[in-house]
């Protein structure tokens, strides 16, 4: 930092004050516009585990949902089959999110759009 024998000029003080104010404001307003979708740091093992968990849980949920509907409607095994397929699709879409580093909020399309706008902003920020 500054040594005490160096008295900063008014311009420097103004610059420093502006910097501190900017930091304060950044601290209070950052992220007000929603999720940042921070990619979770992870090793290959971690990502592999996440993908397998996503696939297993969504298929399991789909199967359970289908089973429930079958019991309710007496339509075995039609609902089970359909729901397992949907569960698989949901698992793939969730695994796709993990691989692409998208956020985990509802709606795959929205997650892709958010990531694209974020990267668009980033590249624009770099060029401009």
């Amino acid at each position: 930092m500054t040594r005490p024998d160096e008295t900063p000029g008014p311009d420097e003080i103004a610059a420093r004050l502006a910097k501190v104010r900017a930091r304060d404001n950044a601290g209070t307003t950052a992220g007000a516009d929603g999720p940042q979708g921070r990619g979770q740091a992870g090793s290959g093992l971690g990502i592999g585990m996440r993908i397998s968990i996503e696939l297993v849980t969504t298929v399991a949920v789909g199967g359970a949902l289908g089973y429930g509907l079958d019991v309710w409607w007496g339509s075995a095994p039609a609902a089970m089959v359909v729901c397992l397929l949907f569960g698989g699709a949901a698992g793939v879409s969730n695994a796709y999110r993990v691989v692409k580093g998208l956020d985990d909020s509802v709606g795959l399309g929205g997650a892709i759009a958010r990531k694209e706008t974020k990267e668009g902003n980033k590249s624009r920020g770099q060029s401009g």
């Binding site: 008014p10 003080i13 501190v20």
Partner: peptide
């Protein structure tokens, strides 16, 4: 502190 610094700065500027 920031406020005071700002006030002192404006005072200095006024003096200048």
């Amino acid at each position: 502190d920031l406020e005071q610094a700002e006030r002192l700065k404006s005072q200095t500027e006024a003096a200048i």
